[in-house]
Design a protein around this nucleic acid. Structure first.
Lengths: 234, 234
DNA sequence: ACTTGACATGAACACTGTTCACACTTAGGA
DNA sequence: TCCTAAGTGTGAACAGTGTTCATGTCAAGT
């Protein structure tokens, strides 16, 4: 990441980036399943074996692509969460900008979305490095909620009954990491909203709305309105 | 499907079923990406080219597997929807049996779940034949709602505001096919519940709950409780 | 100036899906 | 009953894949 000292290191970094860029194009056009080291090498006009100097195998390259997709989506989510709220805009409207950004990104890069939320690759993706961007995405979704709570503007939702100890324990890691000093019922509602958002986007991106929902955008807007309401944002 | 007349037809049917069974085992064990015609042929002790007498290519075999997965899941959903409610059990409890069955099936056959709700295969799945089992799944989920409505036991949910004409049109196919004489707001809530269920199950099956939700079963139960409540089932 | 390390190559191996000409077996009409 | 046509299985072949490795080639560091 830091400035490359020698010329060798610089050309190496450029080459790595170029390989990744071409691989990304291939995935964007034909999906991850069709990703071929040899066709990448052809595009770059070099021998297939040369790629092994930069990535040790197809799975490693795919892992790098998955990581890049995570990062790209996380950037988008943070950008949406960081825009200052226009005068008089409510917490709900501000929150909705984040899932909306997720959907826009997913529609622009459907195969990348599949890389993250679709069927896991046979080998399995890199578990350790993905938790950081994953946390960034969820954090972006959570920030408006926390700020509304801090300002005392968060309503008590309709579905917030008593929560069993079992359920409280189940979501404990999320409570501790993202929602300090927030009632567990709210945490559960937030994770449910997250599940709904991922579900709705995946169903649309993966083609399950065909002949079912004629206007996915309108349905998505209604869904995130419902979710915001359910969480207690106004 | 009907009784095979000649002995030839019968042995052909058996052979087809056997190929499908072996292929299913391979998918269940290593996932769809690793499905190999040659390894299936090895297991069956026949030449790889012989498989082409029964399925014209790997994609066709995969399509058959996808279709079989749809059918299996639909059977499970219908079975859950068909159990008679015990005395005094509410509509909500009855409805929850269906998403619970979906999750149980998904955990038992995670790769098959990926076949249906994961990243679409490069070629693309058979669009026409899948709408029938897909409709069966959704119908099973919808039946308890309709019956509660018919008995006049369906409450008016908290999130049912006025619905725009745009949104009503967006879900029109679902309204017409599955929810005759039901307010559009309820239809929207039902589709949102469907999205949440698919999202929650996919996130669990695809490994996104790792280090996040310690007790996925408890969280799932809470989620379908929330959804039933949101729809207005009691 | 020379040696060491990184880089790139092309050939090779073991796979994969798919096609095809060829045998063999069975079914059904002459 | 024979004989033809269809169905079924085979092995070789082709084009493609990921991966390894011995061989060069070039630039940097001592």
């Amino acid at each position: 990441m830091s400035a490359p000292r020698t010329a060798r290191e610089r050309v190496r970094e450029e080459m790595t980036a170029e390989i990744l860029a071409v691989a990304r194009q291939h995935v964007a056009r034909e999906g991850a399943a069709a990703l071929s080291l040899r066709s990448i090498a052809r595009d770059l006009e070099m021998a297939p074996s040369a790629l092994y100097r930069y990535f040790d195998g197809r799975d490693a390259l795919l892992s790098a692509l998955i990581l890049a997709a995570y990062g790209s989506l996380a950037d988008e989510a943070e950008r949406a969460a960081a825009v200052v709220a226009p005068e008089g805009e409510g917490d709900a409207a501000r929150w909705r900008a984040v899932p909306r950004a997720l959907r826009t990104w997913a529609l622009a890069y459907p195969h990348e979305w599949g890389l993250i939320f679709g069927t896991p690759v046979p080998g399995y993706d890199a578990p350790e490095e993905t938790v950081e961007p994953y946390a960034r995405i969820v954090s972006a979704l959570v920030r408006p909620i926390i700020e509304a709570e801090a300002a005392g503007r968060l309503q008590t939702g309709a579905h917030e009954g008593a929560i069993s100890r079992e359920l409280r324990d189940a979501v404990a890691p999320v409570s501790d990491a993202l929602f300090p000093h927030m009632p567990a019922a709210k945490v559960v509602l937030a994770i449910q909203a997250w599940s709904t958002i991922v579900g709705v986007i995946s169903l649309e991106v993966f083609g399950h709305w065909r002949n079912t929902i004629l206007n996915p955008g309108a349905f998505f807007e209604a869904t995130i309105r419902t979710e915001a309401d359910s969480i207690g944002l106004r």
